[in-house]
Structures are given as C-alpha cells and as structure tokens.
Amino acid sequence: MTATTLPEAALGVLPRADGSARYSHAGYTVTASVNGPIEAQRRDEHAYEAHIDVIVRPAAGVGGTRERHLESILQSSLAQIILVKNFPRSLIQIVLQVEDSPENDYVNTKLVQASLNFAIMPALMQTAVLALLSAAVPMRATATATAVAIMHQDGAKQTVVDPHPRDIEKAQSVHVLAFTSHDELLLAESEGDFTVKEWDNVYETARGICCRSPPQAKEGMAMLLDDESTGGPDMRQFLRSTMGFKVAADLHWK
C-alpha cells in the first residue's frame, strides 16, 4: 500500500553549490543542487528573462526520453514561480539526482519508456523548490506537489495519495498536482481513464495536502483530528518548518 512515512529534508547538503537539498518521501530520495543566476551560454540566453535549466538524473544509468519529458514539465512549472524577469540573460541551473526509488531501476524498463513516471514527480518538484529556497533565488511564491491515484478496490473506487509504483501499475488513473503558496494550480498532469467528477475529487484531495491553511487558526485537539481525517502530510507546513530551521540556524548570531 502507500508509504505512510512523513517527508524528510536536509538543506545545504552540497557545500560547493549555491543551494542544495536532499528530500525523501514515499520511498523516493532526491538530491538537488541549484546554481544561479550565472552567465548563460549564448544559445540559452534570453534577452528579457533567466533561462531555467532543469536536469534530471535517474538513480541508475543515463537519462533518456523519460527524463527529458520530466525536465520539460518541471522547467515550465518552476519558471512560473522563479522571478525570471529579474535576471535577464542569465541561467539558473537545477540538477536533480534521484538517489533512491521504490522501483528497481536495474530492471530494464525501456519498454514503458513512453509513459511518464508519475510517482517521482512530486519528489522532484519538492526538492527543486527546497533547493531554490536554500540558494535564496528570488521567487514569486513557493510550491507544493503531490501525486494521487484512483484505484479499483473491492468494487469501489479509492483515491490513494502518494501511490507506490506497483499501485500505479494497477491504478485506473494517476494525477500529479502542484500548487503555489497562493493556492493557485501550478501543475496538473494526468494519465489513465477518469471522469471530470473524479478529477474534481483528486483536485480536492491534492489541494487538502498542498494548501492546508496554517494550524494556528484551530485548537490543538481539533487540529490532530483534522490531520487524521484529511490524510496525507501537510506539505506547506513541512516546507515552512524546514526553511524555518535553516533560517534560524543561519541567523544564530542575531
């Protein structure tokens, strides 16, 4: 079934990069480095905005079409939240190295290359955002992402948050959604058969995970109960506390 572990993250793990993060959640571990804004190569140079270069490296072997596809999706999402207009003619390089995944990468998966690896997308997105924050790259907003699958179980349809690759194989449809911290939908990728109503359900579930309002509005006990009812981790709170620790450590002298 789903991995119910809470997300974990460490910032600044690579000392020579401008910013870096290691993030693990739902069986995936991804390390990201961010460098920038640096001088762009002539062919990547854009007169009015920064070029965002996303590189995804798989846990085993070299990247192929699948990784290029992931890169293009991440690139267009991240370009929305980074203030690219602030740094014309420059480059912001984001390298995402997959370190660990629940599926066996050594098994030849070339046959299913055309399909998108949905389960890893939230981990990649989240790591990239954490690394960007750690590099202090100016951003419009932060982002949180999650994957949701719709499965047929015991004759009823079930929504599974952060599905395992094996669940994805059996799932009717899989969706990846990302939201900015302004509750705007940033990324929506879907695969499989689903109705509009099902998609609406998925949207609400993902929104509950990515865009939960800060807990201080509720009382302690109600919050605990609420956590159980919605299911899945509170990504926004996780991002905030991770960054809060980093900033507090950086400003220990204050």
């Binding site: 924050l133 900015t180 911290s181």
Partner: peptide, 10 residues
C-alpha cells in the same frame, strides 16, 4: 519585530 517569511507570503 522578527518574523520568519517565505517567498510570496503576505
């Protein structure tokens, strides 16, 4: 006042 903020927060 010292307050922790993230990008885009009000």
């Amino acid at each position: 006042d010292r307050l922790f903020v993230l990008p885009g927060e009000t």
